[in-house]
């Protein structure tokens, strides 16, 4: 069963003093996330990631379209007890301590009174906040608030977790811990839908990614496939003080680093390049085909196609901004 089925969800705001100008925050979005999947929703700031999450959470209402979450309509109140949500840069009741906040959210989520306290302590320990559990949240740093946010999102053992920019504002150690937590959720069989603009996080964690830009889904693909695509080039690394002239004539882009040379050249020149190395008596360290990176895919998808440009010009004519 699909964990999330988004069916042409669209959001348009009316802006301006007289609220007559339409601003498209999300163009009709169609996307399916399978159960147990870790899905990364990538895009630059203002792309429509948070709007999509807010629509799914029922915080804003769609102009058109619908979505099914865990087989239920997204408006079904039963959905909310089975999902967890971490908003972007979360802010909580600062008069409460972390322990009180989690207890309150446990009550609202219907965590049974018996065992609630134990569950709260377990979550505090899981995000490394046991020592600060009694401190009021107004004294928490941004990173600590992010941890509280993660704890509240998984407190009621949801099947599906939505995380909006979970690594933002965290130091390298904090980011590593969040990565580990998402990995743990994957091992527990949870579905994780998280938005980010940090590509290395997505590459390390996701099964699939979707790229959104200017309110429009530009592409969806499995990380394994995207990064295994050959580019028709090879990378050769060998011991040398300078780039051999024979290699340059083969069209290699090379750079010297210490006593090693790293050269990238067309796949068809592989045999000729090896012949140059053998002739000059240079020691080969590695030869690998160059594969696409997520970054290349991302940048490629962010460039508008001719069709998208036409759609946008049509929208401009109708007075619909993005």
């Amino acid at each position: 069963m699909a964990a999330i089925e988004i069916l042409d969800l669209e959001k348009c705001y009316l802006v301006g003093f007289w609220r007559k100008r339409r601003k498209l925050a999300l163009r009709p979005l169609r996307l399916t996330i399978e159960e147990g999947e870790v899905f990364g929703f990538l895009g630059p700031n203002g792309a429509g990631k948070t709007t999509t999450l807010k629509l799914l959470m029922g915080l804003v209402f769609p102009t058109a379209g619908s979505a099914r979450i865990l087989g239920m309509d997204m408006d079904d109140p039963r959905v909310k007890s089975q999902i967890g949500f971490l908003p972007e840069q979360p802010y909580f009741y600062d008069h409460l301590s972390a322990r009180e906040l989690l207890n309150y959210f446990g009550q609202l989520s219907g965590v049974p009174a018996k065992g609630r306290s134990a569950r709260v302590e377990q979550m505090l320990a899981r995000v490394g906040l046991s020592d600060s559990a009694g401190m009021q949240l107004r004294k928490f740093s941004k990173g600590m608030l992010q941890r509280v946010g993660l704890a509240q999102a998984i407190l009621h053992d949801p099947k599906l977790v939505f995380l909006d920019e979970p690594m933002s504002g965290l130091d390298p150690m904090g980011r590593r811990e969040v990565r580990d937590l998402i990995q743990q959720l994957r091992h527990e069989g949870k579905t994780v839908f998280f938005s980010t603009h940090i590509l290395s996080d997505a590459e390390a964690l996701c099964d699939r990614v979707g790229i959104i830009h200017q309110g429009e889904l530009r592409g969806v693909g499995a990380i394994a496939e995207l990064t295994s695509e050959r580019q028709g080039k090879i990378e050769i690394i060998f011991h040398a003080q300078k780039v051999p002239a024979g290699l340059t004539s083969l069209g290699a882009e090379a750079r010297v680093s210490g006593d090693m040379v790293n050269a990238v050249l067309p796949e068809g020149q592989q045999d000729a390049a090896l012949e140059v190395l053998r002739r000059d008596g240079l020691k080969l360290i590695s030869l690998t085909p160059v594969r696409s990176s997520l970054e290349e895919y991302y940048i490629q998808k962010l460039r508008p196609t001719d069709v998208q440009r036409e759609v946008r010009q049509e929208d401009d004519r109708k007075g619909v901004g993005v």
Partner: peptide, 14 residues
């Protein structure tokens, strides 16, 4: 304004 509502309304609270 403080967005404390987001984490409340993402729970089974109408």
């Amino acid at each position: 304004d403080k967005r404390t509502l987001y984490t409340v309304l993402s729970r089974p609270v109408r």
